[in-house]
Design a protein around this nucleic acid. Sequence first.
DNA 1: CGGCGCCTTGAACCAAGTCAAGCTCTGTGG
DNA 2: CCACAGAGCTTGACTTGGTTCAAGGCGCCG
Lengths: 226, 226
Amino acid sequence: MLTYSSTSRPSLQQIAPSGFPQISGAPASRQIEAIGVPMLFKRGNEVYGQGEPGEYIYRVVTGAVRACRILADGRRNIGAFYLPGDMFGLDAGPAHGFSAEAVTDSRLLVIRRRSVLALAASDNEVARELWSLTERELARALERAVLLSKTAQERMAGFVLEMAARAAGETIDLPMPRQDIADYLGLTIETVSRTLTSLEQQAAIELPNCHRIVLRNGPALKELNA
Amino acid sequence: MLTYSSTSRPSLQQIAPSGFPQISGAPASRQIEAIGVPMLFKRGNEVYGQGEPGEYIYRVVTGAVRACRILADGRRNIGAFYLPGDMFGLDAGPAHGFSAEAVTDSRLLVIRRRSVLALAASDNEVARELWSLTERELARALERAVLLSKTAQERMAGFVLEMAARAAGETIDLPMPRQDIADYLGLTIETVSRTLTSLEQQAAIELPNCHRIVLRNGPALKELNA
DNA sequence: CGGCGCCTTGAACCAAGTCAAGCTCTGTGG
DNA sequence: CCACAGAGCTTGACTTGGTTCAAGGCGCCG
């Protein structure tokens, strides 16, 4: 059984404060972003911890973030990956149920929750956007739960398709190591590796190197995805 | 492999329309409920179907509802159970990702989404309540995803604790059959049955009959829940 | 009282986990 | 520029938890 200890603390770096400009008439998401402060997080650093109050919400500009939880016995579970364009930190009822860590060096927009709420109070569009973002996050979480009750091959196919949907073309660059994929899919690293190899042998994908997947037969993967 | 065919259609029954009273100053949840129409759904009937637009949101008054999805090959997945007091139907971005069916004869409050949105537009409290409900639903979905990457015994313990948290005392009355529990936990009905028996043998629970579980040792279950 | 749906139990099987090498990058220092 | 070291990935052999297949029991309703 592989266990995890806590990640190193910040050493994060603020890039530039942007103040609180009032951008009326802009789309709601733009308005929310406008009150954010860009920051750099180094690979492996914690953005927020499990159990901390959700004081901020975030938007990934570049890089990748994982939402993870360490269980009492050391097992780790990854609840989501956030890629450029994604907002996260919405999973905080009273407190965050998961911690968030930078998978690679990442540039994040950090937005004060109170500020967004204030904005939402005066602007319906913003309030609606907040709800909509959370709704989308909910849909993703439910989708992952469905994935988790399937076979290893189906989970892997689902994961590849999920990643492919976010990549522009046929080539997927994975920012995360195999262990992260394993913890996301509820499998072991060995099973992830074997299953990817098997998908390659079935000519569904190509694996030029371990950080890259090339889609060769999307329909076949969708078939596997059940 | 057990497969599922579509459930019977409505035969639902409206109890009494309540109109659109304006209840200013009431708590947001009350205001939302006030614009709902109570309806009866018979055991097994569909409340809404997978892929349908989310025209309504619902509140369980009595009974129980399951959110489920049938996969292409006939496997079924249950995404959530909704018990008295729960609101559901919030998982509809453009359309419902899951269908909803009455587990037992159920009395539901049916609320037009458009009406809630209109209410939210003029009342911040309502808008916030909507967001908060969706956030809670998200937290539950993430929690279930964590559960799904554990062992059968841990899943079962988690399920029992989840149900116990909603029951007043030590006695849990399960409205759903074993097959529903299995599809919720991503297990087979046999494993559910065996695992419950095993928990009883460990003196963690008591099974007076198949619709009832009595908590005998909550702490032990929490231990198992990791 | 009989039949049927649902639940439990048993035995055999298999997918995924575990344990253990070995390989391949990638970065580093000589 | 190359050799080396280490982390991360792949592969193999074995084990095991959970599924599958099959039989039997229990309780409810007509």
